[in-house]
């Protein structure tokens, strides 16, 4: 395994039983994600995009094959270790924002840092800087229900990157926001990737995401249809 591959899938498959049928959500996938990548997993609904993100994020385990994160085979790790990896090395951005409703923007962004045991002072400095970076300065004390969809997704991005993860897994991050907000969010993530070197892996069927991605892996029925790199 090459050292600079953050994520590597080796013949990874995920099958589900649905009644009498076996569904091949992911079927023998192999690919690498490297540091600084800005990659989009594309494909129609049911093509296995979200399942791939779940496997990489340790939210699900492959039926067969292997998934490596920073050289560690996730399938061999205990639940507790996977939980710690999710906390320390992976940032999640979900389609439906998925912020904790009783927490303010600041607290949501600081939540994972506090789980890591980062000191209050460092936490404050990092969260304040990140919220400023994602354009939420002045909205720190607002709760999710007091913010627009775009603002909530910015908080989710702040929460994902504030821990300086190895990779940010973004599942349809623009699906629930309007065009203007989608462009703005993509611009933000592109800038974070370019300027701070944050690695992003998207699952999407949004053309705007695909237009900005530097690599597009197209999936169909759980298999790679094409894998294109753009410069």
């Amino acid at each position: 395994m090459e050292d600079h591959a953050i994520v590597r899938l080796e013949d990874a498959s995920k099958y589900y039983r649905q009644g009498q049928m076996e569904v091949h959500a992911v079927d023998g996938l192999s690919f690498d994600i490297h540091k600084g990548d800005f990659t989009a997993l594309c494909g129609p609904s049911g093509s296995g995009k979200t399942t791939v993100l779940n496997l990489i994020g340790g939210l699900d385990v492959p039926t067969s094959g292997k998934v490596f994160l920073e050289g560690r085979d996730i399938g061999l790790l205990s639940r507790s270790k996977i939980s710690a990896i999710r906390r320390d090395r992976i940032g999640f951005v979900f389609q439906a924002y998925n912020l904790i409703p009783v927490m303010t923007a600041y607290e949501n962004a600081a939540f994972v840092l506090s789980l890591q045991g980062v000191s209050d002072r460092e936490c404050r400095d990092r969260v304040t800087a990140i919220l400023k970076e994602v354009g939420l300065e002045g909205l720190e004390n607002r709760r999710p229900d007091e913010m627009s969809g775009g603002q909530q997704q910015r908080v989710a991005i702040a929460r994902a990157i504030v821990t300086r993860p190895a990779i940010v897994l973004a599942d349809e991050p623009t699906a629930n926001v309007d065009s203007a907000n989608a462009d703005s969010l993509l611009g933000l993530m592109e800038r974070l990737n370019r300027e701070s070197g944050v690695t992003f892996l998207f699952s999407t069927h949004d053309q705007r995401v695909m237009d900005r991605a530097r690599r597009i892996i197209r999936l169909h029925d759980g298999r790679i249809e094409s894998d294109e790199v753009f410069n």
Partner: peptide, 16 residues
């Protein structure tokens, strides 16, 4: 359920 799932996804442990 969803909120608790998110908490677990971002690294909150079962005992927490």
């Amino acid at each position: 359920i969803r909120e608790l799932g998110i908490m677990k996804a971002v690294g909150v442990k079962p005992w927490q």
